[in-house]
Amino acid sequence: MKLALDELTVFLAVVDSGSLTAAAEHLGQPVSTVSRLLARLEDKLHTTLLRRTTRRLDLTEEGRDFVQDARTVLESVRVAEDRVMTRRGQLSGPLRVDAVTPFMLHVLVPLMPGYHALHPQVELTLSSNEGYIDLLERRVDLAIRIGELKDSTLYSRLLGHSRVRLMASPAYLSRRGVPHQLADLARHELLGFSEPEILNLWPLRQADGKLLQIRPTLQASSGETLRQLALQGMGIICTSDFMSAVDVAEGRLVPVLPQLTEERLKPVHAVYYQHSTVSARIASMVDYLAGLMRAPETAWPMLAAR
């Protein structure tokens, strides 16, 4: 019995996407080809890996046991390919990077031309999600996460810290007045997140010693949406420097209650799953980003290096 790499690739694509059709779209192959390769794999293993119903596909017990083995085999092949390409002085192949939309737009995208110039044969795929994702399920190699890490199955490298501050447009403050103390916020439009609630905890200390938990008058799920609303004069936001630095420099946003704002720094990590050998492509991106953090005045002035 000889298993083929395309059979393992199809099997994992079906598992991760949840259907033959979605797997076919992801792989750029006809559904008939995906179905045939999956059937051939099950025939070689003399077992059923997936139960097919009219509505969904479910892993059998044998399938659940086989998933991790299949991932390990494909990852080993990727690492071997990376070693060969590294010895030849060049990297090639896919690299999938994920980050929340604001960080992707304001930080990563401007840095990608520099990375592409260094590694032109690496095939980048950039994805954005507003919350944490399962890297394996989404087939993501590297994610940039802001805030404290909770997943112990991930390796991480600290890239820097993101500082948050209150901001509003000059037009809004001219129309509604400039707040000078905490109580003044009661008569202002506060723009906040629809979820999670912790993102609506602002760095302002109340009389009882607790940070201010706002009740937004207008909510959105994305920090970039809130930034755009603030630029349109819709209210006050609490946002990260990496999103607002250019707006502040060009006068589109100005700080609100800076004398009362406590310094809050959120760690920014590059995270990836624990493999026995880290993919050279992953390492190249992490090293590139970390190297720029060591010279924030030229690349990331909106992040605090400490």
Rank of each mutant, 00 (worst) to 15 (best):
R157E: 14
S76I: 00
P120K: 05
K2G: 02
S284D: 07
E75N: 15
L201T: 13
L59G: 12
E195H: 12
T261A: 10
E148M: 00
L185K: 07
L257G: 09
R215H: 11
D287M: 02
P301I: 05
T277W: 00
A305N: 10
F103D: 07
L159Q: 05
G18A: 07
S76Y: 01
M112G: 06
T9G: 01
I214N: 02
H116T: 14
V109K: 11
S174Q: 15
R71W: 11
I144L: 15
L37E: 13
V178F: 13
Q228G: 02
L124C: 08
E137T: 10
D65K: 12
P170R: 08
G18V: 09
H275K: 11
Y288G: 07
L257F: 04
A171D: 13
I198C: 02
L135N: 08
M85G: 12
W202Q: 04
S174M: 08
Y132I: 00
P216T: 07
A99I: 05
G160V: 06
A24N: 09
E81A: 09
V10N: 00
T277L: 05
S279F: 06
S156F: 06
E137H: 09
T21D: 06
S162E: 14
I144G: 01
L105K: 08
F193T: 05
S222L: 04
V79Q: 14
V271S: 12
P113F: 00
L154V: 02
P170G: 09
Q68K: 11
H26D: 08
Q206N: 05
L173Q: 07
Q29N: 04
D98N: 15
S152D: 13
V109F: 03
L229S: 03
L8R: 02
L41Q: 06
T47F: 12
L253F: 03
L74Y: 07
L191N: 02
E130M: 03
Y115D: 02
V15F: 03
V254M: 10
R56W: 05
A80S: 15
L50D: 08
R176Q: 14
L173V: 11
D43Y: 04
S194Y: 03
E25K: 14
L166N: 12
I144W: 01
L201F: 01
R71N: 07
N200L: 08
S221N: 12
V254Q: 14
I144M: 13
A143E: 05
T48V: 13
R51N: 12
S240A: 14
V246L: 10
Q29F: 03
I146Y: 00
R88Q: 15
T225N: 01
Y273M: 09
Y132E: 12
P113V: 05
E297Y: 03
M104A: 13
L211H: 06
S194M: 04
Y115C: 05
K44V: 07
A99E: 08
R52W: 03
L149C: 01
D58Q: 10
V254I: 13
P258C: 04
A70K: 02
V278Y: 00
T54Y: 06
D43I: 01
